[in-house]
Amino acid sequence: MKARIKVTLKNGVLDPQGKAIEGALGALGFSGVESVRQGKYIEVELAEKDRAKAAAAIDEMCKKLLANTVIENYAVELDEK
């Protein structure tokens, strides 16, 4: 089982890196960019075959380490290999 995890900043949390990327896109002449938010993408390979158990384990991993829920949201997709 493979988990694809997206960690993104919550709305309202300032994202200086996203802002810098936004500025750089503007400087390159890309018009119409309304905003840029930067996040993280993490892949975790699991030995677990049971989908529900895998989902529960990944959720725990996200809460305990992969995301800081003070400022970040996470979304998980599970793929059976």
Partner: peptide, 11 residues
């Protein structure tokens, strides 16, 4: 401690 230390606003 509560909260988090984020990237400096000036990067």
């Amino acid at each position: 401690l509560p909260g988090v230390l984020m990237r400096n606003a000036g990067l």
